[in-house]
Amino acid sequence: MAAPESGDGNNGAARMVTLISSDNTRFEVEAAAASLSQTLQLTILDGGGGGGDGIPLPNVDSATLSKVLEYCIKHAPAAANGGAPNATAVDRAELERFDNEFVNIDQSVLYSLIMAAHNLEIEGLQSLVAKKVADMIKGKSPMEIRRTLGFPDPTPEEQAEMNAHMLEYGWAYE
C-alpha cells in the first residue's frame, strides 16, 4: 500500500514524515512514531515520506488514522528504548491507563482500528484492540456475544444450527 518513494536521505533525530489518509488528509508525525508500523517502517527507512511527498494510506480514513497516530505517538518513546528495561513503573502505569481509555470507544471505531492496525501492522495496537474485543466476548453466552458484536439476528436455519451445535458443545458450557 505504501507507494515507492524517492529517498531524500534525511535521517535527522526528529525526522518528520507525512502520511496521507484515504480522504486526502495529511498527517505529519515523527518518523519514530510512524515506525511502530511494520508496514511503514521499511518505507521510512528508505527515506520515504519526507518533505512534500507523503505516504498514501488508501485503506485508512482520517478519523482512524488520527486515532492510530495518537497511539503511536504515545507509545513511540517506550518502543524506542526497548520498552520495559528503562521504563519506570509510573511510565508503564501511565501507558496502561492511556491504553484503557484509548480502547474505550465505539464499536465501529474499534473495528476500523482493528483493520488499520492489521494493515499497518502495529503490533501493540493489534494486541490492544484484540484484547478489547476478547473482553467483550469473555464469559458471555453465544446470544449475548452475537448481540454485543452486532451480529444480525439469526435466521431460523441459523438458529437451528446453533441449537444443534449447543448440544454438541454442551461440555464447553459446564
Binding site: 466476548i137 469473555k138 453465544p142 446453533m162 451445535h165 458443545y169 464447553a172 458450557y173
Partner: peptide, 12 residues
Amino acid sequence: AQDAVRTTVLAR
C-alpha cells in the same frame, strides 16, 4: 480455552 471454544456456536 473455554470461552474460545464457545465461540464455535456463534455462526458458521
